[in-house]
């Protein structure tokens, strides 16, 4: 795995001034698809260097939240501030250029394209230093270097998830949003993925994670938000959430 001495993180992830302003702050975000309101006023914050996890069942609005932050959904009200600038309603490609990125649910890699092509697509908006980024991703995921010219369809589920994360790293992100990384993966692979996310965080990457596997996610995160039907119902540090009786009953199966 990468040692921190080989290269600095792609961009400075630490706050510059004295006051650590949150990297991403969302205030009363509402999103609707036609008449259906998917998010009904969500507020949350992600500070630099944190792993923040969104817990919630299917349909709670986690994916909608991440996609709205990235700029996919049109009908959005409320405010989304990333790195001090309002980005609500900005197109996804501009947000990616500004340092946001999303690892989509279900390991959304381009199955008919080669691993290398997939990685380069991640750098589509930022082709400077592309070889440096590529080498760094290969350091993180040596398996991808081996499978470089293979078509992504032939990869296993875990390898695809690594490819999706690697592709996100190619865009030199300042905030990585990961949507349901554990879905449909074998438990042992899930452990690997969370270990990787933790290591990435240790390298200075800020991560916003959405997850149904609440126990694993809270173990590796600093803070968490519990979402239910488009609302944040509970927020707090991971320890607090892990010990919260309501969370225990609903998500931890205790």
């Amino acid at each position: 795995m990468a040692s921190s001495s080989t290269a600095a993180p792609f961009r400075g992830n630490r706050g510059v001034g004295g006051i650590p302003a949150p990297l991403l702050s969302i205030t009363s975000l509402c999103v609707s698809y036609g008449h259906i309101r998917a998010l009904k006023g969500v507020s949350l914050e992600v500070n630099r260097g944190e792993i923040v996890v969104l817990i919630g069942a299917n349909g709670a609005g986690k994916t909608t939240l991440l996609e709205s932050v990235l700029g996919i959904n049109a009908q959005v009200t409320g405010s989304v501030v990333f790195d001090g600038k309002s980005i609500r309603g900005r197109a996804a490609d501009r947000n990616v250029r500004a340092g946001l990125c999303l690892v989509p649910e279900g390991r959304g890699v381009f199955a008919s394209m080669s691993v290398l092509d997939n990685l380069l697509l991640g750098a589509h908006n930022n082709m400077r230093n592309v070889t440096a980024h590529l080498n760094r991703v290969y350091e993180w995921f040596p398996i991808l270097r081996k499978r470089r010219d293979q078509v992504a369809r032939t990869l296993s589920g875990g390898e695809r998830q690594m490819l999706a994360i690697g592709r996100a790293l190619m865009s030199a992100p300042r905030l990585i949003m990961v949507d349901e990384p554990s879905i449909g993966l074998a438990p042992i692979v899930v452990n690997d993925i969370f270990a990787i996310l933790k290591k990435l965080n240790a390298e200075g990457y800020t991560i916003l994670l959405s997850e149904q596997n609440a126990y694993k996610a809270l173990q590796c995160a600093h803070r968490g938000y519990v979402m239910e039907t488009g609302l944040v119902t509970l927020a707090g540090s991971s320890e607090r959430l892990l010990n919260d009786p309501g969370v225990k009953a609903a998500y931890l199966g205790a």
Binding site: E67, A92, V96, L102, F110, A111, D117, L121, H124, N125
Partner: peptide, 14 residues
């Protein structure tokens, strides 16, 4: 090629 394979996925990548 990315758009040809999956337009919404391509949009997610930026």
């Amino acid at each position: 090629r990315a758009i040809a394979e999956d337009p919404s996925g391509a949009r997610l990548v930026g």
